[in-house]
Amino acid sequence: MAHQPSSVPIERELDIVTARQKGRELAARLGFSSTDQTLLATAISELARNIVAYAGSGRIELSQVEEPGRRGIEIVALDAGPGIADVELALKDGYSTGNSLGVGLPGARRLMDDFELRSKLGVGTTVTAKKWLR
């Protein structure tokens, strides 16, 4: 079964809304409950917001993932921004280098089932997060 991953360019604040709407649509199509759709859309919103705030631009890729016995949705948030110096610290609640609450990354992690953050200073940041259908 072919499923095209969709890629949403994140360049300005309005793109955040587009990304979360696309994520919600895909989640609905895959059969996620309306609560899970909202949790996903909120996680996408936070990840997209981080791109705008810290990297300036990037993209959000949304796709269906399948593993033996389970199906889900994968969000990949990529940017070629400054990168995160201390990934562990960035995932701590209440920590922020910008003018924010510092809930974005740790919050998005809690909203998703799997969460992986890779970042390299001067190269960029990639967050890969999955949520499984239950």
Binding site: S34, T35, Q37, T38, L39, T42, E46, D93, L101, V103, P106, G107, R110, L111
Partner: peptide, 14 residues
Amino acid sequence: IQPEVAFAMVQLGL
């Protein structure tokens, strides 16, 4: 505030 939105806010710690 919708129930799903409230769940998400709680998980985000908002």
